[in-house]
Design a protein around this nucleic acid. Structure first.
Length: 361
DNA sequence: TAAGGAAGCGACGCTAGGTT
DNA sequence: AACCTAGCGTCGCTTCCTTA
């Protein structure tokens, strides 16, 4: 509801820093302002006196409610050393985070920081009323529009404006979700001010820019982690260049940096992101000698959209004939998720060139 | 009859509490 | 401290009902 998330997150950051100071006497200061493209994604921190300790914060309300794996994934994807800044980290979570060596601080003084001479581990501080104030301001994302299935629906609605007025059954069909889901999503969008109804059975998206940003955040948090198949590696460093458009033969597409490079020419891809359909996946892995490796630079995700052929002709207008790349919306999200400065720069370009204009009312 | 809404159900994931 | 387990809430599906 309240989309002043930046403010709330800044508050949360401040509260957590204060709490850490009270517990340890260490000051955490913000040395970097907002991120790119209105989406605040990250803030850098350092501990005063130890100039070397820099973290990139992942500010997270409702840390308890979010998927733990996704959370760790997100924090680890921050550039440099990621740090979770949360409203409240319960003891269980604290242990798990420490095990995985994920630094965190929360608003009630729990913390884990393990950097060379410095070792801090505080857990068990209770969730106080103060933290609850933040909670009270907006309920957790319990609305259906930004849940995994809702994200699918919103995606096809944004990409296919005519579809907004189509019968629920059609929307459900194209988005690949159940009929019952569509009503929930539409109502949630209405309530959030992202959709209006007029005349008889007419609907229209509203506030599309903000919707897009919300979609990106929700996509990264709720849906993409579920699509993640794993990290892979291969001997030939430039296999992806050789493959290029041939990737469509495997029913797969480039995402992230490769897609961004193709769209803007502003990037030399280091991490390779692929979205692949169920069919053709094994062939893709085998014929290109990709094998699983925890540190591999090839990130593979499942596609969440249905085959484009079923979408009708309207969709082609939006894909810009880049049939070997995923939608710019997804590329944009992929880039933001890395947090890498050059990627953020490129994300901005993609936003300006391919997303901003369509998002106008 | 076509379309949206509601009920009910199962699957899943998280939490708290107990046990080893 | 690490591991189970039961309990509970949420999500999303299918099916049925209501309304124009």
């Amino acid at each position: 509801m309240n989309e002043d998330n930046q403010i709330i997150e800044a508050d949360l950051l401040g509260m957590a820093a204060d709490a850490l100071y009270k517990e340890t006497g260490l000051r955490l200061v913000n040395i970097n302002e907002l991120g790119v493209a209105e989406q605040r994604y990250d803030v850098k921190l350092r501990i005063e006196g130890y100039d070397d300790f820099r973290f990139t914060a992942e500010v997270k309300r409702w840390a308890q409610q979010t998927n733990f794996g996704a959370l760790v994934h997100e924090v680890n994807q921050r550039p440099g050393k990621g740090m979770l800044v949360a409203d409240y980290v319960n003891p269980k979570m604290a242990d798990k985070l420490r095990k995985l060596d994920v630094p965190f601080i929360d608003a009630v003084g729990n913390a884990y920081i393990n950097e060379k001479p410095l070792y801090i581990f505080i857990k068990g501080n209770k969730n106080r009323v103060q933290a609850n104030i933040i909670k009270a301001q907006d309920a957790p994302a319990t609305g259906r529009a930004f849940q995994p299935t809702g994200i699918k629906v919103v995606y096809v609605l944004i990409r296919n404006p005519q579809l907004v007025t189509a019968p629920y059954r059609d929307i459900a069909n194209i988005a690949g979700v159940a009929l019952g889901t569509v009503g929930w999503v539409i109502n949630d969008l209405k309530q959030g001010g992202y959709l209006i109804e007029y005349g008889k059975k007419q609907r229209r998206l509203k506030n599309k820019k903000q919707l897009l940003h919300k979609w990106v955040a929700a996509y990264l948090e709720k849906l993409r982690p579920k699509l993640f198949l794993g990290a892979f590696t291969t001997e030939n460093e430039y296999w992806w260049k050789d493959l290029d458009e041939g990737i469509v033969d495997y029913k797969a597409r480039w995402g992230g940096e490769v897609a961004a490079a193709k769209m803007t020419g502003h990037l030399k891809p280091e991490k390779i992101t692929i979205y692949m359909h169920k069919e053709g996946g094994n062939k893709l892995l085998a014929e290109n000698r990709l094998h699983k490796h925890p540190k591999g630079n090839i990130q593979i995700y499942r596609t969440f959209w249905k085959d484009e052929e079923n979408w009708g002709n309207e969709i082609q207008r939006f894909t810009d004939n880049m049939m070997d790349c995923v939608d710019p919306m997804i590329v944009y999200a992929d880039l933001l998720a890395t947090g890498d400065p050059r990627n953020l720069e490129t994300a901005k370009i993609i936003y300006d060139e391919r997303l901003d204009e369509f998002a106008y009312e």
